[in-house]
Structure formats: structure tokens, C-alpha cells
Amino acid sequence: MKTYTYTEKKDTRSGFGAGLAELGRTNPNVVALCADLTPSLKMGEFIKENPDRFFQIGIAEANMMGIAAGLTIGGKIPFTGTFANFSTGRVYDQIRQSIAYSGKNVKICASHAGLTLGEDGATHQILEDIGLMKMLPGMVVINPCDYNQTKAATIAIADYEGPVYLRFGRPSVPIFTPADQTFEIGKAIKLTEGTDVTIVATGHLVWEALEASKVLFEKGISAEVINIHTIKPLDETAILESVSKTGCIVTAEEHNVLGGLGESVARVLALNNPTPQEFVGTNDTFGESGTPAQLMDKYELNSAAIVLKAENVIKRK
């Protein structure tokens, strides 16, 4: 079995900051907007190097989304930055009308997604954002897994014409994808080959899925781990090919099971190849205060939960 190791941990938001800084040097049309959270979004380098291409909006996310839509009229490629909660739920109608329905080339970049925001608690821990964004016609939804992939995704979405939701997080997580990767929107990445169970994971749960696959291997279970960094458009072919071999699947995400990656996968399977599926995600609940690790354990968003669900789903074959 292919195994993955890491020598360094970093937050995915820093990957966004590094990607944005690189875009600042390579693409003169890229502009950035922020609603008073530039240190949290790691936007400092871009701002320092491109002060004339940065718009400090103040604490006014609705206005930020509208201004971003307007900046596209004149050829700019705006990247908005704030927490995931304030990037989606707070401004859903602004995104819906002024960006998605209007077909504007805005990149909505959302940090501190999910439970791993930690101590600030449920007011800030959005677990519904993937659902909100994937329901918008034409919106691309991306949730990369580590620093390198987030950096690559940030760079890649500038070349894609249309609205994109890019979701990343606050905690330091292992860096296990290549620094020199090319990010392909909508193209799943098979991380391990397996025959007994497919595990598709997104964001922070991808590393947990790899950890789970090691435990499963020791138990004699061969798991195929797929990194679904793009939830919409979903790489249906990769999922169907894998389950045709394994016959069962576990989905894993730092998001409500209602409306998330798991439901998107279930739809593909229901239409093409009904397959036993188990879901790792929050179960229709809000989060709470705590350290990221405590929260991921309490809400069962970890490798142990994935192992358990994998064993369960294999029994249902």
C-alpha cells in the first residue's frame, strides 16, 4: 500500500495567502478584497506587494460581494477574503443575485471553515457552506486538503472564468501533496489503490482518511482513498470507477452530512450504481467551543470514525 508521510504542518489559509501573493506577481488583473480580516486570511504579502490592487472594505461583507461583482465589469478578477461563515451564510443573497445569477468572475475565498476554527464556537463555525454554495447554479466549490494544494488551487481558479467558492481552514495540518502540483478543477486524485472499500474525503479529512487506510490495512482491509478537492463539479467517473471495484464507499468531510460532499456522492451512486455508503460528517448539529482536535474527536471527524464506518459499510455489501 502506498503510504504518505509529512515533515511539516501548516494551515491551509497560508496556502491561500501564498497563492494569492504569487497571483499578485503573475496576473495583473487579480485584485483582492477583505472585510477586516487580512491577518487571518494571510493576505499580507499580496497587500504589501500590490497596495493599489487591494480593497479594504471594512466589516461589511454584503458590500464586499457587490463591489467584487462590480470590479469584474472592467476585467478585474476579484478574490474576496473573510471567514467561511461570513463568506456564505451572511451574504447568500448577494452572492446569489450579484455574483452567481449575474455570472460574475468572482473568487469567494473562505477561511476558518468548519469545526477547526475552534474556540470561537458555533457562531463562527459554519458547517453548511458547501451545501449553500453547491446549490447555486454555476458555482464551482473547492475544498483543498493541505497547504500545497490550497496554494495550487488559489492559483488555478484565477484562470477559470466564472464564480468559485474556495474553502480552507485555520489549523495546521500535515503537508503531504507535492509543492509543484498542477491543480485541475474537478479532477479527483486517487491517493491509494484498494479493493475492499472506497474512501472519498475532502479538505482536512483527506489526511484522516489516509491515516484510516493505514489502520484498515493492518486489519487486512484494502482501502482506496480518493481526494475530492472539487465538490462541484464532482468527478463522477473517479467515484464510479472506484466503487465498481470496491463495492462500498465512505465519504468524509468537515461539514454537515446534510448538503455536503456525501450527499453529492450518494446522488451519483443512486443514479448510476446503487452502493452501500456511510457518512463521516457532522450530524445536523451546530459546533461549539474547544480546540480543533477536541472538536474533531467529539464530533467524530477523525481517522477512527472513518475506520469504524469503513468496517460497517463493508458488512453491508
Binding site: F55, G70, L71, D93
Partner: peptide, 22 residues
């Protein structure tokens, strides 16, 4: 731009005005 859900047009106009300046 699409409009109908009220209160969004001035923000969009501001973005377009700032793009013109750039």
C-alpha cells in the same frame, strides 16, 4: 448586473467605478 433583490446595486456600481479608476 441582475437586480431585483433590493439594495445591492450601489455596491456593484462602486466596484465598477473603482475598476474604471484602476
Amino acid at each position: 448586473i441582475a437586480s431585483g433583490s433590493l439594495g445591492q446595486g450601489m455596491s456593484v456600481a462602486l466596484g465598477a467605478a473603482q475598476a474604471k479608476k484602476m
